[in-house]
Computed example of a mutant assay.
Amino acid sequence: MKHILMVDDVTTNLKSAAEVLQPFYHLSMAKSGKQALNFLKKNRPDLILLDIMMPEMDGYETMEQIKLNPRTANIPIIFLTADTERESEIRGMKMGAMDFITKPFESEAMLGRIEKVLQMEDMRRNILSSAKKDLLTDLWKPEYLEPEIDSQLKHISDSGATFLLVDFDDFREVAANAHSSNADGIIIRFAESLKTLAPTESVLGRIGRDRFLVFIPYGLNEIELLGLCNDIRDIAIKEANLASSADETLTASIAITLAPQHGTDYDTLLRKLDMAMYYIKQTGKDQIHVYRGV
């Protein structure tokens, strides 16, 4: 079910919209621009319905802040307005609004405009995804990871961000003893498991035959981080082994860097991930290691 955030300072407007939208969409509500921006720090809806006339921070100001953040900049926005002036519509469209819905709401027109915008957004995402994603795994290609992650690092919250490098141990030997299609099957099954295990809003990439990046745009506590790493090693590797016809059992090592403690850009954090992974490979493999300057 698609997720819509509605922002309106008038309670009766929120209630009337909820009656129309809740049977079809997961609906979240905010009563001010500030509330909406706080909500967006931890949530990414598929669409924002944004009232123009609000006190303190109006819809235009709220939209400017949304567009400045790379994590939220591409969320489609429909303005809600009782203003029928052409100038308001022109201003909104120039700022990037996808459409307008006038108040009071007419249910069929409202649903139709929302469905049209969501369909357009799905098409846009599919086109972008096909260019940026690895054909075998549907994970981000290496050349697109750096600009995407660097843009997100500029807007991380006080909790920081988490970066994992997952590397199969001795994959070359296992793949050499497996049929080529089975070797690809190992990669595919692992990638599918990784998608289900990774936290919300993670950026997942494949940067080598058997090397995977997980970027989480917020910090995890020690228990959460250890739990995620153990899940990746235990569950995902079991899935990968189901696709292998080789006698060897695959294991995986995981290196970890944290932002901003270990760096504030993709290149620095990746370099330190490689250093942490080198340490693992020299000390026995099949381990989890946080970068500590070694």
Rank of each mutant, 00 (worst) to 15 (best):
residue 113 R to H: 03
residue 41 K to I: 09
residue 101 I to M: 03
residue 18 A to G: 12
residue 64 E to N: 11
residue 22 Q to Y: 12
residue 42 K to M: 14
residue 29 M to H: 03
residue 92 G to Y: 00
residue 55 P to E: 10
residue 30 A to S: 06
residue 68 L to I: 08
residue 53 M to P: 00
residue 79 F to H: 00
residue 42 K to W: 13
residue 61 E to M: 14
residue 24 F to A: 11
residue 105 F to R: 09
residue 69 N to W: 07
residue 90 I to S: 02
residue 37 L to W: 00
residue 67 K to G: 07
residue 121 E to M: 13
residue 114 I to F: 03
residue 96 G to L: 02
residue 125 R to D: 15
residue 31 K to G: 15
residue 63 M to Q: 11
residue 88 S to D: 11
residue 47 L to F: 03
residue 78 I to K: 05
residue 89 E to S: 02
residue 65 Q to W: 11
residue 127 I to F: 14
residue 88 S to M: 11
residue 112 G to N: 07
residue 129 S to A: 13
residue 19 E to C: 10
residue 110 M to R: 07
residue 120 M to G: 09
residue 90 I to C: 07
residue 72 T to I: 02
residue 117 V to K: 04
residue 73 A to C: 08
residue 109 A to I: 14
residue 116 K to F: 13
residue 27 L to Y: 09
residue 26 H to M: 15
residue 56 E to S: 12
residue 48 I to A: 07
residue 116 K to G: 10
residue 38 N to T: 13
residue 49 L to N: 05
residue 119 Q to C: 10
residue 93 M to K: 10
residue 88 S to L: 09
residue 131 A to T: 11
residue 100 F to Q: 07
residue 113 R to G: 00
residue 116 K to I: 13
residue 57 M to N: 07
residue 104 P to T: 00
residue 120 M to E: 14
residue 22 Q to K: 15
residue 42 K to E: 15
residue 131 A to Y: 15
residue 116 K to E: 13
residue 61 E to I: 01
residue 49 L to H: 06
residue 44 R to I: 11
residue 42 K to A: 14
residue 121 E to C: 13
residue 94 K to I: 04
residue 52 I to D: 09
residue 77 I to H: 05
residue 20 V to S: 09
residue 55 P to Q: 05
residue 24 F to M: 08
residue 49 L to F: 01
